[in-house]
Design a protein around this nucleic acid. Structure first.
Lengths: 331, 331
DNA sequence: ATGAGGTGAGAAATCGTTTCCATAGAGTCA
DNA sequence: TGACTCTATGGAAACGATTTCTCACCTCAT
């Protein structure tokens, strides 16, 4: 693999000149430039990003980190696409890692990010007060928190109005006549779970429906827990007639559990999930969901990060996108 | 961010000694080691991977590249998890990119990989004779081809027995009485598409059923094309009574199209897809599929790559995993 | 007491860039 | 013509590690 030095030697100029040609910074006389470019062509030279990054402390490394809690969750996959498309358009590569909702794994990857000296990091923090992330941000690394909020006002954030989305969903269930509405809430410590739960509670309160703790369960955002918790709820002495499930995977789990009980959706139990699924239409029945603009979330986060790289002194930005209730057949 | 030099100065030793402590290579007297370690602790020192990579030409960079055609396809997401878990267990970070089935994008990312000097690259090649990938491999970069085969015998490959899977699926359709079986094939230029198609053809031939070209359509592996092609097939003068769909996303599209026509699965049209889906059970009806061991594929690929890093002179390995027909309700 | 041998640690080279500073040569102007 | 400014280019330092070479010092045997 040829290096700058090889090119310089072959073109009979100094490495400084070659570097100038590459970065077409300062002036290089057209003839010299032509020669150098020809030699680069001949040798198939390509600058070594590692060396470049080492030297260039202030500059763009054209690399950004994305740490996702679960790449198998279609919501995050869609966020990733949003990030990735913006990155690619700006010739950034994305270093994508999976934290598995595991703080230790996240810490490992944050270290990797720091050590790889990426330009910035985008992530849905695993907990609201995630000290590893806060520390990284304080050390000067640009960080954008997506989907979930961090307990800090100085960090760029892109989130969805979870309260509003949940409120509308439960409001809809009430409007079509449900009085006993169960909630399968998301993992604790997540701003999203809290906000969605609050939406559920206030939608009930708004029409003076009692909040029944026995109809509320807390899951871990995975498909399996959606199933077992739904079974628990259906086993209650007087089970709910409708279910609001705080995340997409758990909603699928809930649907499966209901099928196992040979119950009909929506006649026996109505169901609304949070987060759309590309295959929601093909489910039995097509699932009513609160759709988050996941792609937009990713796109906005990446753009926010790039903007911050351009101007590090910008005040922290906070973007809240609107979710949308998509009515299908499950309620 | 403290550097080796800072640690050395603070510990009153040379940078060489600090380096030796870090890599606990050669001998360092315990006392010195203790001092250095204490200082590293105090300063929160962490070696800079960029600098390390620059120098260390032969050594492990603990970074591997994964280029996926579509991260939103659950099959690839599962592969990614397999890769990622092995990587994490060996303290490797994964540089994950999305080629979007786009050769130009893939080429860009391959350049990034080379420039980032990753240890090796894992990818499902976008085409069978993918010159960019072959060139990279020839330049000495370890490459593992997953899921899809490359037109080369010198590249490590992990694939699934697509022929066998398709054969069994179509054989099953025949066994339950279908005679007019449609095929929605995958994108051309893919070894997987070719093998699955061959499985379809030979399963028909095995029982002397005619191969009807009008019942075969070629899609692009995306959900939308599954839908439109299914509609085309259903519009045929004498439409198929069963459909074998060569990929998971297209199968979902097919299911939706069938629903749009108010037809019943499996009574009006039976359906088998290739690739399982985490939510296949919740579909209407639960989808019969040929399940590929996606996680295993990723795991095996990562292990193969790590093994090659340990011993570059190993002959090329070729692993073919068995898929499994999972009978649900769609046929 | 002296030389051999072993061991721990420092000095310096190196990786491939960027960038600051120096300089040669050309051009400009009085 | 000499002083002065440009400007294109070269030289060399720096980035932060690894690694080779070298050396000082200690031990032990002769």
């Amino acid at each position: 693999m040829p290096s700058l030095t090889d090119v310089a030697r072959r073109a009979k100029v100094s490495i400084a000149t070659v570097s100038r040609v590459i970065n077409n910074s300062e002036k290089v006389v057209p003839e010299t430039r032509a020669i150098v470019q020809r030699v680069m062509e001949e040798l198939g030279y390509q600058p070594n990003r590692v060396a470049r990054r080492l030297r260039q402390k202030g500059g763009r490394r054209h690399l950004l980190g994305l740490i996702l809690p679960d790449i198998q969750n279609p919501f995050f996959a869609e966020v990733a696409r949003g990030v990735e498309d913006v990155a690619y358009a700006n010739q950034f590569a994305v270093l994508l890692c999976n934290s598995d909702e595991n703080l230790k794994k996240e810490a490992f990857y944050l270290d990797v990010m720091r050590a790889e000296s990426v330009d910035g990091v985008i992530l849905p923090p695993i907990a609201e007060r995630d000290s590893a992330v806060l520390k990284l941000a304080q050390s000067g690394m640009p960080v954008v928190s997506v989907d979930r909020a961090l307990n800090s006002t100085t960090i760029d954030t892109v989130e969805v109005d979870n309260f509003q989305g949940a409120f509308e969903a439960v409001e809809h269930l009430i409007k079509i006549g449900h009085k006993r509405i169960g909630l399968i809430a998301g993992r604790a410590n997540l701003s999203t779970s809290r906000d969605r739960r609050r939406g559920y509670e206030e939608a009930l309160a708004a029409v003076r429906l009692p909040l029944r703790p026995e109809l509320v369960r807390v899951g871990d955002n995975k498909q399996a827990s959606g199933g077992t918790l739904t079974e628990e709820l259906l086993n209650e002495p007087s089970p709910p007639t409708a279910l609001f499930v705080s995340n997409n995977l758990m909603a699928v789990g809930a649907l499966e559990a209901i099928h196992r009980r040979k119950l009909k959706v929506p006649d026996d139990v109505a169901l609304i999930g949070f987060d759309d699924l590309p295959w929601a239409e093909a489910l039995d029945p097509p699932l009513t969901v609160v759709r988050q603009p996941a792609y937009e979330v990713g796109r906005a986060a990446a753009e926010m990060l790039l903007k911050r790289l351009g101007n590090p002194d910008l005040p922290a930005a906070w973007l809240r996108l609107r979710p949308r209730l998509i009515l299908r057949k499950s309620c």
